[in-house]
Amino acid sequence: MYKISDFADMTGLSKETLRYYAEVKLLEPAYKDPTNNYRYYDDGSYFLALLLVKLRRFGFTVQEMISVMEDESFEHLEELLLEKREKIQMKMKDLQLQTEEIDDFLASGREEE
């Protein structure tokens, strides 16, 4: 069992994030000491925490992460990841078009000089 501070160091999640995730039932501690309310996490929690770190890095919202965690079989995870990937690719195309528009705008301003 790992104390919340040790678990935060291991996973890269802050203690505040871990408390929030417990509050929204996203990642609850394996054990909470009733005498002092200390939270303890186990190896199973570690795997789930690493998954949450990845999902957050991929731009998943808390609600999307909850949906993934509720589907304990992770049956739809690949589908969600592919959808997220497609959205990111679309954003990249949009950003590329914006960059090109800025370049064109700057170039047209230079031509008028």
Rank of each mutant, 00 (worst) to 15 (best):
R56Y: 02
H76G: 07
L97G: 07
Y2H: 04
F74L: 11
E70T: 08
E113N: 13
T35C: 05
E113R: 13
L55D: 00
F74M: 07
V68I: 05
A107Y: 14
F60C: 03
I102V: 12
T11Y: 04
E86N: 12
F7R: 05
L26A: 06
L13I: 01
S67A: 09
Q63I: 05
M10K: 15
G12I: 00
S5K: 15
L52T: 00
D33A: 05
E23Y: 06
L95K: 14
F60W: 05
F60G: 01
R56G: 01
E28A: 11
L97V: 12
K32I: 13
S73E: 05
F58A: 15
I66M: 07
G44W: 11
S108G: 00
D33Y: 03
Y40G: 02
L50K: 06
L50S: 05
E75G: 08
E72M: 14
Q63F: 03
E75Q: 11
L55F: 01
K54G: 04
F7I: 03
I88E: 03
K84V: 02
S67Q: 09
M92H: 08
E83Y: 15
F105M: 10
I88K: 05
K54D: 09
L106N: 12
M69K: 12
Y46C: 09
L106R: 12
E86R: 13
D104G: 04
L95E: 14
F58E: 15
